[in-house]
């Protein structure tokens, strides 16, 4: 019996890590995979989603709706940023890194100045349940379920919808997508908005579990970055398996030696993967 309880605790650790990696990374992965842009302001879109969600909850909006509002606000912010800045730098990946880094700094500092160093938190909802001697927050299951739902949703969008097929064509051979009648600029701006919206969703989902500070994006960004590097350019074939592998490493190391070693394990995994698979897991799976 004892080992059973322990095994369940391990599974929950894995589920936590997996959900966090998937939710933190998928927006970054889409923008990188579809547009070749490393969006260093990804963490700030997460923060935007979290802040809007918390503000909505304080205004009396129920949490699930508040999270949706957070995600949409972040997607709209993404559209504005794409329109004002990103679209002028397509095909200039290094410039877009500097640009998004700049956006990240400006947004963090502006938030600090206008909203102060933290927001009153809203607390984790839905209570808890016990398995043997251990007690778990129900919200952890919500997060894991959300991560699976996001992956399923992305799979459906990119394989079964007109937009998804057009977006993949644009990613694979942009000039032939255009010569086939696709407005690739519009596809890029929607893609960026979706990436920002997914970041906002991650922020909204985790908002009840943490203290909101203007620099909160950074803690998501590290793990998102690691996941995208390991996974490569494809969300389904890359981000999902990368998150699963990294979650095992992180949960195992955390269980064995604590949080810090969980982080160290992730970084070592990245270094090893870059050596063996320079294009990440999805680059390996889709090689020709």
């Amino acid at each position: 019996m004892e080992t059973g309880y322990l095994a369940f605790a391990m599974v929950m650790q894995f589920a936590d890590a997996f959900a966090f990696l998937v939710l933190a990374a998928c927006g970054l992965a889409i923008v990188f995979g579809m547009m070749g842009i490393v969006n260093l302001a990804h963490g700030e879109f997460i923060m935007c989603g979290a802040y809007v969600t918390v503000a909505a909850v304080h205004a009396g909006v129920p949490l699930p709706l508040a999270i949706a509002i957070g995600a949409i606000a972040s997607a709209l912010a993404g559209m504005v940023v794409e329109f004002a800045c990103i679209r002028h730098l397509y095909g200039r990946p290094l410039d877009s890194i500097v640009l998004t880094w700049g956006i990240s700094l400006v947004v963090t500092q502006t938030t600090l100045i206008t909203l102060g160093s933290n927001m009153p938190s809203i607390g984790t909802p839905y209570g808890s349940f016990a398995v043997g001697p251990y007690s778990y927050s129900v919200y952890r299951l919500v997060l894991f379920g959300s991560a699976l739902a996001v992956l399923a949703g992305l799979y459906i969008v990119f394989n079964w919808t007109r937009f998804g097929i057009a977006a993949r064509a644009t990613m694979q051979v942009p000039h032939m997508a255009a010569a086939s009648g696709l407005d690739t600029r519009r596809i890029y701006s929607w893609t960026f908005a979706i990436g920002a919206g997914l970041a906002g969703l991650a922020g909204g989902l985790y908002a009840p579990t943490m203290t909101l500070v203007p620099t909160m994006g950074t803690s998501f960004m590290t793990e998102a970055f690691v996941t995208v590097v390991v996974g490569g350019a494809d969300v389904i074939l890359g981000t999902a398996p990368a998150a699963a592998i990294l979650a095992i490493i992180k949960a195992g190391m955390t269980y064995w030696k604590g949080q810090l070693f969980g982080q160290i394990g992730l970084l070592i995994a990245v270094i090893v993967v870059i050596r063996i698979l320079p294009k990440g897991i999805s680059g390996f799976l889709t090689r020709q």
Binding site: A166, R168, A169, Q172, V173, M176, A179, L182
Partner: peptide
């Protein structure tokens, strides 16, 4: 185009779907 430039990681059917989007 010269060199054909089909969408390599999409199926034949999806390639034709993209063509029909015009």
């Amino acid at each position: 185009p010269q060199g054909r430039d089909v969408f390599p990681r999409m199926t034949v059917s999806e390639n034709l779907t993209v063509g029909a989007m015009a």
